[in-house]
């Protein structure tokens, strides 16, 4: 098994945290191997923010660090979707925050458009947990990592005062069924 996951958005959208939660969940709470790289612009807010994660069930399948043909992708903003869509495989499952304008999509993709950001604002009173709604949604639709593993990882990665709202957001994502 080998799965490539790409998440991209603007700085401040919690892309790096989402990546860290997934990476730790796989490494610590499942038998999977994982490689993750982050890239972000120097100015943390507004600039590009991208996480590449590669999950495998054998060490031997881990090679290059970066995603070349994502099986699963999340785009939290339209600019990054345009910029990185060449890295998304034809058969990919693609999650897109529809709170923002959505450019043209590849027809072979299985696409989920959800206004994660607006939903976070409406249901939980803050846009900053949009990433966790998206994460829940991804886990629900792809089964990439065991739900319990992700929950344990969230508790470990996010700051204490955010844990309960992040978990709520995650569960909200798990319940999404569009």
């Amino acid at each position: 098994m080998r799965k490539e996951f790409l998440a991209a958005g603007r700085g401040g959208q919690g892309i790096l945290i989402l990546g860290h939660v997934l990476g730790l969940a796989a490494a610590k709470y499942t038998g999977l191997y994982v490689t993750g790289t982050e890239s972000y612009d120097a100015e943390t807010r507004g600039g590009d923010s991208r996480v590449d994660l590669i999950f495998t069930d054998s060490q031997d399948e881990l090679d290059y660090f970066k995603v070349r043909s994502a099986d699963i992708a999340l785009f939290m903003y339209s600019d990054q979707l345009l910029k990185y869509r060449r890295l998304v495989g034809n058969e990919a499952i693609v999650f897109i925050d529809s709170s923002f304008h959505i450019p043209e999509l590849r027809s072979s993709w299985q696409v989920y458009r959800v206004p994660y950001t607006d939903m976070a604002e409406e249901k939980l009173g803050t846009h900053v947990v949009a990433n966790m709604i998206a994460l829940g949604h991804i886990i629900r639709k792809t089964g990439l990592i065991d739900r319990e593993a992700v929950i344990s990882s969230i508790k470990e990665v996010v700051r204490k005062r955010w844990v309960s709202v992040d978990l709520k957001a995650f569960e909200l994502g798990m319940e999404l069924d569009p």
């Binding site: 990476g23 796989a26 490494a27 610590k28 191997y33 994982v34 490689t35 993750g36 790289t37 982050e38």
Partner: peptide, 10 residues
């Protein structure tokens, strides 16, 4: 520098 900041299972 690439390895330095690559996150992996260890």
């Amino acid at each position: 520098a690439v390895l330095a900041h690559a996150w992996e299972k260890v």
